[in-house]
Amino acid sequence: MWKWLHPYAKTENAYQLCVTLQPWLWVSALLCLAVGTVWGLAFAPQDYQQGDSFRIIYIHVPSAMLSMGTYVAMAIAALVGMVWQWRTAYMSMIAMAPVGAVMTFVALFTGAAWGKPMWGAWWVWDARLTSELILLFLYIGVIALYGAFEDKQQAGKAAGVMALVGVVNIPIIHYSVEWWNTLHQGATISKFDQPSIAPEMLWPLLVSLLGFAFFIGAVTTIRLRSEIVRREMHRPWVQKLAQATSENS
């Protein structure tokens, strides 16, 4: 695997990989998001208790799960950067951070809009909600810390440490509904033995989840490309690239 992975430590190869992957990621993301949304909104059956308000699940659960997933991916990138001194790893870390922050915001916002009709409150200081809010602050912290350093290698290290320390929050979010008495309902689909959700409701949710995942991948590739260009500005290949793009447009 190392032989296969190692060339991508070089920024030029990583950039090219992003360019190749991008159209595929976009097509898959749009397709899955469209199918998942239409299926979830119009074709999935109503919930017997929550009526049609439960349809918010088709964006709330994917964004919440992937806000945590993106954080873990970001922390792994930070670890790789620290252990193997890969500059590209730090670059992907910082490329993922804003995408994860947006996912966290979406999870919190849709949660609030779902909580209002069901719980009667936009927001409660409940364990699940609070720990997810902390996740948003961790993302913002990583972005801000990275931006605070002039030397971007130093910035990557500092922000990477923060990203790694913040990983403790992930199991807290996941188990918050079991550890504390909360208003938020327990896990329904990540109980692999027996998901307690009807298959007609589960399938659109999985498609939607896939769509969000592809979307995150697609935005991360474009942001990683930007980060590479910003850091490698004076490399001949970037200069050639800039010339080629200006000629095309």
């Binding site: 949304t37 909104l41 049609d52 308000s53 349809r55 918010i56 964006i59 709330h60 964004s63 947006v102 915001f105 979406v106 916002f109 849709t110 809009a113 779902w114 209002k116 009709p117 979307f215």
Partner: peptide
């Protein structure tokens, strides 16, 4: 609530 959620989500994305 439903359209607010979907609207804001896709808007932000």
């Amino acid at each position: 609530y439903v359209w607010l959620s979907f609207g804001v989500t896709f808007g932000v994305m």
